[in-house]
Nucleic acid binder design. Structure first.
Lengths: 126, 126
DNA sequence: AATTTTTTTAGAATTATTCTAACTTTAACT
DNA sequence: AGTTAAAGTTAGAATAATTCTAAAAAAATT
């Protein structure tokens, strides 16, 4: 575990945010000004392969990364891009049964308009 | 419905493949040599907004598109990128209950190594 | 300590996608 | 039918995210 990898991992674990690679790079630079973007990407890929973190694909925008402690899905606002976690009890088993073969990882994404954004939209059309 | 949009939609519906925008562009050019990449993207976005097609985000690689007739998930080989559909009975309801708010669309992706690729891997390490 | 392997760095290169501005088609109206 | 407006298309430039490259540094192994 290099110092660089530790920094990347710490950022992802530090809060409940789901950062993009670019955001992680910016945050990492605060602690380690010489870190390179390529190193951030290298480590994100490595940590993903080790299943320590998960990639949330960004629907056109940049991908985001989060902790892989417990399996969960993501509620994504199509307006502001914010991500929230949610859990379906027993989902891993439901999924395995439906797929019928060894699953390396999964991604479950529900696209919504979050309450802030839908209020804002309502307000602007009044 | 312009001729261009009809061509794009026909390609997506024509077979069970899940094409990338670039592949759709290449196929569309066969029928309509002057079609532009931007038109393909425009129409993919418009059809997606109308929920006639769905985008499958590409985990780093290019996004793919498919029919939105019936809700289903995707089994994606991490090696060759091939996509297969699968269904979980009653999933839409399970999901709505877990999320607890209006869902515009969802994406459910199971990452696997397909049988062809795992055989190939086994063969090459023998 | 010397050697080999792995990781990092900075910046160039690539890829997918979006933007732009001019042009064409379609629709709506008189 | 002719005119105007609106929507859609085109080609290519621009952008954004990510990957690649080659040299340097760090870590691991002998």
């Amino acid at each position: 575990m290099t110092r660089q990898r530790a920094v990347v991992l710490e950022i992802i674990r530090s809060d409940m945010c789901h950062h993009t690679a670019e955001e992680i790079f910016e945050l990492a630079k605060e602690k380690m000004p010489t870190i390179s973007r390529a190193t951030v990407y290298n480590n994100l890929h490595a940590l993903e392969a080790e299943k320590i973190i998960r990639r949330i694909s960004g629907d056109g925008a940049a991908d985001r990364y989060d902790n892989a402690f417990t399996p969960h899905g993501h509620i994504i606002c199509q307006e502001c891009g914010r991500v929230r976690d949610f859990v379906i009890d027993g989902f891993s088993r439901i999924l395995s049964e439906a797929v019928g073969q060894q699953i390396d990882s999964y991604e479950l994404k529900a696209r919504v308009i979050c309450s802030e954004c839908s209020e804002r939209q309502k307000a602007s059309t009044d």
